[in-house]
Write a protein that binds this DNA or RNA. Structure first.
Length: 557
RNA sequence: AGGCGAUUGGUGUAACGGUAGCACACUGCCCUUUGAAGGCAGUAGCACAAGUUCAAAUCUUGUAUCGCCUGCCA
């Protein structure tokens, strides 16, 4: 699943292509990615980022990064910075970085214009009354008593709102549309509210802030965005989006909605991710189990794999839940091509090579990537005492088990074929050690007259380095943690999603730099953690395990 | 007096009136100094009903099911 060069042909790209062909906006294409800086980006945002930036690129257009910072309540510079880092890491760069807050003055002027044209009014109803007057899904709302106040009065009040003459929540500016509209968003939506909050960019310059609806389309218009792509929940807002543009007579950006991404065995809503962090269910926003970009980055997911995944799930209007296995496939696919191979043993079983001279140490050569000659090779020490994986030995097993068994032979990866002659056990009958003999004629050579099928990994006991490892499993133990409305999603958090253990690894692994990823042969892909690794002492995160068809087969039998 | 949108194998998608294809997952076989990767094969699908048409996944209507909407959030 490498990133293909031919472009996808989803309905949005078809629409953009048709617009270009028709000469709309002179064939110009411009998009934007508009996050609110109130949280960390997650895999769902990655889908939107890829869509917007890729479309701009494919059609020779521009894509801006625009922070939708109209509500200072939960917004901060920390998020502004983290979002930029995540987007760059994903592999994208913006034409311009914009802030809705840069348009506050213009927005205010436009609000004045709508008041003057009789399309907006200052309402003094309380929040509770506004709700009550709005009506319900099946009943029309009713007009506010302030709805038909004179234009001049609204004008004066709105100016005074800005001047800070009224308390928070005392009044709002509303669009005058239709309180009986079947679309709730058209029942005189709020355009401005009074909030005495410090804004991360404009400071205390304003005490009134525009709403999303009165900001987004105008921001698109100011920047000249031709295609304003957003998720399905804004479908109901499109009539409003168009209404403001039409009333204001500004550049007609067009909004198109697509389904957001959902993933099995996880949650992606900001609120729920926050709950996981604040409830201590994970170590933080960048916990490797989190579907955040920072979490996936820390876990070792390559940016290219995430892009590839986003391309694979496509863009539609059908709400759906993608299988996390598809994401994992994209990760393995990328890592299989790029990650150097190494050897490490998770559950060591000592093996003494009886016919190997006591002090003899040789170096064998291991290829870094069998599928990529250019990846080169490294040397591995081989000596009398080695460790193999406990599960690679069975005293007795059928022929399906082609690893080491008593009296049987197996290939040590990159080294010799050995034969198990004797099994040493302790008083409890637990296997403590294997005595094996080496077939000296089999280094990088197959024996004559017999075929040895199994290959297992190993490390030299005297040369192995011990390193901490964290194994991650799915964050939730059910496919759709949000599906059961009667139960809180937290009930489904997988108690075994994190396992801390250690590995014995080949010497070269001690040199792994934080953030680097390799494959532990026959086990999985691991990266050196960026937070907890020290020079010469990596702490490994298991990015994803290798596919294991033997485990399935063994389990089935 | 509700509105808007959606519905194609287990999952995610393609098709734009003319043989339902791809990927993931799953199953079997081959290959292999990673039981990985790779190769080959296989299982499995148009929500339902009417209508238009020589011909419907595709157009029309109805039904069902699901999603979103009653923040001074975005």
């Amino acid at each position: 699943m490498s990133e293909s060069t031919d472009s996808p042909t989803d309905f949005i790209r078809q629409k953009v292509a048709a617009d270009v062909a028709a000469g709309k906006h002179g064939g110009r294409v411009q998009t934007r990615f508009p996050p609110e800086p109130n949280g960390y980006l997650q895999i769902g945002h990655a889908k939107a980022i890829c869509l917007n930036f890729d479309i701009a690129k494919e059609f020779g257009g521009l894509c801006n990064l625009r922070f939708d910072d109209t509500n200072p309540e939960k917004e901060s510079d920390e998020f502004v910075r983290a979002i930029q880092d995540d987007i760059r890491w994903l592999g994208y760069d913006w034409a311009k970085i914009c802030y809705a807050s840069d348009y506050f003055e213009q927005l205010f002027t436009w609000a004045l214009q709508l008041i003057e044209s009789g399309d907006a009014y200052v309402d003094e109803l309380s929040p509770d009354d506004i709700r009550a007057y709005r009506g319900t899904l099946t009943e029309a709302g009713k007009n506010s008593p302030y709805r038909d106040r004179p234009v001049a009065e609204s004008l004066g009040l709105f100016q005074r709102m800005r001047a800070g003459e009224f308390e928070d929540g005392k009044m709002v500016l509303r669009a005058k549309i239709d309180m009986a509209h079947p679309n709730m968003n058209m029942r005189d939506p709020v355009m401005y509210r009074i909030k005495r909050l410090h804004h991360h960019r404009v400071g205390d310059a304003w005490c009134i802030y525009p709403s999303y609806d009165f900001t987004h389309g105008q921001s698109d218009a100011i920047e000249g965005v031709t295609h304003s792509l957003c998720s399905l929940e804004f479908e109901d807002h499109r009539p409003l989006y168009d209404w403001f543009i039409q009333k204001l007579g500004i550049f007609p950006s067009q909004q198109t909605e697509f389904a957001r991404l959902n993933l099995t065995y996880t949650v992606v809503s900001k609120r729920k991710l926050r709950t996981l962090v604040e409830g201590g269910h994970v170590m933080g926003w960048n916990d490797p189990r989190m579907p955040t970009l920072s979490g996936m980055r820390r876990r070792g997911y390559p940016a290219a794999a995430i892009r590839s995944f986003c391309r694979a799930v496509g863009i539609t209007k059908t709400p759906s839940t993608s299988d996390i296995a598809l994401l994992e496939h994209a990760v393995r696919d990328e890592l299989n091509r790029t990650a150097p191979r190494r050897m490490a043993v998770m559950q060591p079983l000592e093996v003494e090579l009886t016919n190997w001279p006591e002090d003899k140490v040789i170096e064998v050569v291991g290829h870094n990537n069998p599928g990529d000659e250019s990846a080169g090779s490294r040397k591995l020490p081989f000596a009398k005492r080695i460790f193999i994986e406990q599960e690679d030995f069975r005293e007795e097993a059928n022929r399906k088990f082609f690893r080491l068994k008593k009296g049987g032979e197996v290939r040590l990866r990159h080294a010799y074929i050995i034969k198990c002659d004797e099994v040493i056990k302790d008083a409890n009958g637990e296997i403590t050690k294997l005595l094996c003999s080496v077939d000296m004629a089999t280094l990088n050579k197959n024996p004559e007259g017999r075929k040895v099928k199994g290959v297992i990994h190993w490390v030299s006991a005297d040369h192995a380095r011990e390193a901490p490892v964290r194994l991650f499993d799915r964050l939730f133990s059910v496919e759709k943690p949000e599906a059961d409305k009667a139960r809180e999603f937290l009930e489904f958090v997988n108690p075994d999603s994190l396992t801390a253990t250690t590995v014995l690894c080949e010497p070269s692994l001690a040199e792994m730099k934080p953030g680097e990823t390799c494959q532990f042969e026959r086990i999985g892909y691991f990266c050196a953690d960026t937070e907890e690794s020290n020079l010469g002492h990596p702490v490994f995160n298991r990015t994803v395990g290798l596919r294991d068809s033997w485990a399935k087969q063994d389990q089935a039998s």
